[in-house]
């Protein structure tokens, strides 16, 4: 027990977290989309798990607490799944977002000038 909850354990976790941080900063520098996604968001999930499990002690907390938090998280995925199909479109059956499409085109053109 003392090994699992002693300062040495916490410092070890912290060291791993910092190492992961370095990876998540370096990864996207290759500018390959898959690598960016994995190193930025995959590692964020790993880091979040490590903080929750070890620092917040969810690993040893009653499962009830885990269920509470996970339920709320699942509801957020539901929210995203129900909402994203509408927000992520620039035109629909009887509607159109001309201003948004113009902004996307202008923004991309401006970006092309930068590079």
């Amino acid at each position: 027990m003392s090994d699992d909850h002693g300062p040495a354990h916490y410092i070890r976790i912290w060291a791993i977290l910092v190492a992961l941080l370095v990876v998540s900063v370096i990864g996207p520098m290759f500018e390959i989309q898959v690598v960016t996604l994995i190193t930025a968001f995959g590692i964020a999930c790993v880091k979040a798990y490590m903080v929750a499990a070890n620092f917040m002690h969810l690993k040893t907390e009653k499962t009830l607490a885990v269920y509470m938090l996970v339920t709320c998280l699942v509801f957020m995925f539901l929210f995203f799944a129900g909402t994203a199909p509408d927000v992520m479109k620039t035109e629909g059956t009887n509607w159109d977002k001309p201003a948004l499409r113009a902004m996307i085109a202008a923004g991309l053109a401006e970006g092309a000038d930068h590079h």
């Binding site: 709320c72 929210f79 992520m88 620039t90 923004g107 970006g111």
Partner: peptide
């Protein structure tokens, strides 16, 4: 979750945000 979810949706439909 609500705020970041809204951000991600917008981010995915707005490729030009990468330039910002």
């Amino acid at each position: 979750g609500g705020l970041l979810g809204s951000y991600i949706m917008h981010r995915l439909v707005n490729p030009q945000w990468a330039n910002y």
